[in-house]
Design a protein around this nucleic acid. Structure first.
Lengths: 208, 208
DNA sequence: CGCGCGGCCGCGCCGTTCGCGCAAGGTCCG
DNA sequence: CGGACCTTGCGCGAACGGCGCGGCCGCGCG
């Protein structure tokens, strides 16, 4: 290990969890917590101000989401090292975070040893993804992702709208909505629209 | 304040969060962490072994759920003081925990001051429920809750089964399932079955 | 360059399912 | 006994889901 400590930024809207991470980092000589943030906007500001070596980032936060924050930070600082630290929210959500530029993916159910190991690994340039998450992503690797339009329609259906209402709201024909629904059912392997919505929620395509 | 410290048990499947709570409690002279548990079964065993003054309990855990653990503990120790500490999971879920005997309800997004205040208040015999949760419960106070059978049917529907399949699986007639569905839609104020499922998930009637 | 491919949009047909209204029997419990 | 919950029945209009057809566009590949 080098003698200069690894400087960390922690982003999470739960103060108690931030406290827990702070406690873990406090017990490690080579890890130093330099800033905290409670949402995506604060995260971007804090990154600009402190330029941490590694950032621990939750995904679901008020205001700006974690994925947005990762995109914004990586656009401004392309070599930023970011580790997602979240409760599992579906393979699609996880994949979006990794594609946005995260090098690591940890679950909040991790042990402290896994946390510090991952921080050091990512600092050393490696990628570290929790096995459960990696498995889920791999299981759906061959799947065709839903198009933006399809997600839009699935959202409308989840809100309790009929095909006709969704069509009116989007300014298209009901027949077109049905065609999209057919594609959605096929891609998700769902029996009907209700099943499609539950799958969408479980996989992180829709949020609550 | 009395000179004897308040002895606490913390139950949560996230080690990092437990660490955070431990850190918070460490900074308070009158609060003493005496045991930790990672699921409902461990919680019951730990309660028997340590008889804590106050228990902090998450709701969603592997194996035995938090509500089950509260019921089991309160059955054996009727004067156990339990505070739920969880990410918000719907008014129905929260209500079940309070009816099971919890005196307090905190969100993981709470500040450390709210946590220690609530522990002391509950220790003093008062009830403390986070405002957001209290509002949600109040908003649905007049609603008729779903019956056990209705929940069973809603679960089947959420899994992507038609009325016919649900009926066959429960050994009843399709007409009966339809009658239950009608009642479910009315009670939840849903437009259709898909809407009913999303409402059920949001309100904590169904889990993912 | 031309071509295919995939996403998006529109139309019609048809059998099945859903949701609504109405009615009515049973149980169990306070 | 009243009041819940669970159960079953029937008819009907609307919605859903599967089928096939065509067209438009932007993209990458031969």
């Amino acid at each position: 290990m080098s003698d200069a400590p690894i400087r960390l930024l922690v982003v999470d809207d739960h103060p108690l969890l931030r406290e827990g991470i702070a406690g873990v980092l406090d017990g490690e000589d080579d890890l130093q917590l330099v800033a905290e943030a409670a949402d995506g906007d604060e995260a971007i500001a804090a990154f600009r101000a402190h330029r941490p070596d590694v950032t621990l980032m939750d995904l679901q936060m008020p205001r700006r989401s974690g994925v947005d924050a990762i995109l914004a930070i990586r656009a401004e600082f392309p070599d930023a090292r970011i580790i997602v630290l979240t409760t599992y929210a579906g393979d699609v959500q996880a994949l979006r975070a990794l594609q946005a530029g995260a090098q690591g993916y940890l679950l909040k159910s991790s042990l402290r040893k896994e946390l510090v190991d991952t921080v050091r690994s990512v600092m050393a340039g490696r990628r570290r993804i929790a096995a459960e998450v990696a498995c889920e992503i791999a299981a759906h690797a061959g799947d065709a992702p839903l198009s933006a339009r399809e997600i839009e329609i699935l959202r409308g259906v989840a809100a309790g709208n009929s095909n006709k209402v969704v069509a009116a709201r989007l300014g298209i024909s009901e027949e077109t909505v049905k065609a999209h629904m057919k594609s959605i059912l096929a891609k998700l392997g769902a029996n009907d629209r209700t099943h499609a919505v539950t799958i969408g929620l479980r996989r992180g395509i829709l949020d609550v």
